[in-house]
Design a protein around this nucleic acid. Structure first.
Lengths: 196, 196
DNA sequence: GAGTGTGAAATTGTTCACAGCG
DNA sequence: CGCTGTGAACAATTTCACACTC
């Protein structure tokens, strides 16, 4: 989040920014900003603030955004296609190198520069040339089996859009994006409002 | 999350479930489960556990999932189309009642049963028949202006897929889903692994 | 005996406030 | 004088442990 704010300031041409300014943009507090940033080192100058481009570059390094990562998509439905087509990801260093599906109607179709491959090829492909991040866009029922195959193929990081908690070894990092859950949270906010 | 676990147990036909079992499925701890559930009341029986269907129904009520909510989509790109087409949302009580876009090439096209309308009609449509939740699938640059118009039209709950922090009055509940942010988090996990 | 509900203890996270530097 | 970096105070959350019930 700090990086996103810093990049805004970069575009505005600001040379330095104070913890107070960062906090206002990021929805935080000045003390919180200073504590968070100090975890990784002393980037600011007293009396001046934080140097915008240098700190942005530093955070990019910390986050590993100074290199490119190889992504494979499994489940090339509309959501998957939306992701592959999203230019913002390539700009940030995330390259989709393959897309897979189990549906014969989808296999062979093109999404941007990728041709959708048969999910049966997944294991062999992973063995041939690895991937850094596996993106799961399959229905919930298929997600766990696909995740297991990704991990067996050497993938240690998974972005999961299926609405199930994946059970994977602890060395695998999983991030879940579950629209159902998000909407249920909003539903709770709406329900609260009505009864108050 | 507890509701999702309970529904799994419901499908399996289990009549009761212990805090320990819920914790294992949900990736939590037994004490945490008991504290969380006790916030809303005493649902369990000592020595037995929690009654699965009754508790699920109770949580649905708490979350407001015992009624239907009206959603409008603004920004009918691939992501938006994927959301409108996702059957899981209708099953949970979330109905898309309209979709809008600014691109003349998209206006008039169909997404499932919806015809994409001109975003210029948004304000009048909201005045005519309200919506509960606004879903923003526009590019980042357009998101704030659309959010303002949604709020002026009476929407008090927003699901935002654009990669910007929306500034809105405090009575409006915003949930952000930002793939870029999620992938950056995974990038950090990958970068950490390499340097350890 | 199994398992909830809950105060009290332990831990974790946030805010304060100020010394110290540019 | 403005603003960071940080220990100390404070607040929130999680875990413990046990009385109580089925």
């Amino acid at each position: 989040l700090y990086l996103h704010c810093l990049e805004e300031y970069e575009r505005e041409g600001k040379a330095t920014v104070s913890s107070r300014a960062l906090a206002e943009r990021g929805g935080s507090t000045p003390a919180q900003v200073r504590k968070d940033l100090s975890f990784f080192g002393s980037f600011g100058r007293r009396g001046i603030g934080y140097p915008v481009p240098a700190l942005a570059q530093r955070i990019r390094g910390i986050l590993g955004l100074d290199r490119r990562w190889r992504l494979v998509l499994v489940g090339a439905g509309r959501l998957g296609a939306a992701l592959v087509g999203y230019r913002g990801l390539a700009e940030r260093g995330f390259d989709f190198v393959a897309a897979y599906d189990a549906d014969p109607a989808r296999i062979g179709t093109r999404i941007e520069e990728l041709t959708v491959r048969d999910v049966a090829d997944l294991d062999a492909d992973l063995a041939a040339g690895g991937a850094d991040i596996g993106v799961i866009g399959t229905p919930a029922e298929a997600a766990q089996a696909i995740a297991d195959r990704l991990v067996r193929g050497g993938v240690r990081t998974v972005l999961n859009f299926a609405s199930v908690k994946l059970v994977l070894p602890p060395e695998v990092t999983v991030t879940n994006v579950d629209m159902t859950l998000e909407l249920e949270t909003l539903s709770y906010a709406l329900a609260r409002r009505r009864s108050d």
